[in-house]
Design a protein around this nucleic acid. Structure first.
Length: 151
DNA sequence: CGTTTGACTACGC
DNA sequence: CGCGTAGCCAAAC
């Protein structure tokens, strides 16, 4: 939809390929996926940080009519751990139904715990073979503990 | 042809 | 910690 330019096709293809790697019972976020794809030519890194996730959402939307059976689109949710489809919509109910069928638990705010069910990403070799980047944690590292927070 | 809107996020209050 | 806002690109009105 949005982002119609010569690189759109490639971008969408990368998104779909990454989403295909998400295992059953795990979820990932739009921003997390975007962080693995290098910014297209002419897009500044700081702009891409905000544009990328939106484009990933657009790519998910495009799945509906193209590659629906092979792309587990339902495992892609927003950064808060919730479903981004219009609440009450048919698609939103389907997504939640599929996730719960895989064991994903939604709390009182209709969100799930990304620390628990968040996907850690493909291994380095898989990414490198496709010219992709290491997924970048959204939050800044905890300087005291020195641990990698992921989400 | 100007406006509105969207499967987003970061940031400020 | 919850809620509103800005920023950005295209497609749909």
């Amino acid at each position: 939809m949005a982002y119609e330019n010569p690189e759109a096709e490639r971008f969408n293809a990368l998104v779909w390929e990454i989403v295909r790697q998400v295992p059953e019972g795990k979820v990932t976020t739009y921003g997390f996926i975007a962080s693995m794809i290098p910014p297209p030519r002419g897009v500044a890194a700081n702009d891409y940080a905000r544009l990328g996730p939106r484009w990933v959402g657009d790519a998910m939307n495009a799945v509906s009519g193209i590659d629906e059976p092979t792309v587990p689109w339902h495992r892609v949710i927003n950064a808060r751990g919730g479903i981004s489809l219009p609440e009450g919509s048919k698609a939103a109910r389907l997504q939640r139904q599929r996730l719960e069928a895989e064991g994903i638990v939604f709390g009182p705010k209709n969100t799930c715990d990304l620390k628990k069910v968040g996907w850690e990403g493909p291994d380095a070799a898989w990414l490198e073979a496709r010219g992709l980047l290491q997924p970048q944690p959204r939050k800044k590292p905890d300087e005291n503990s020195g641990q990698l927070p992921l989400f």
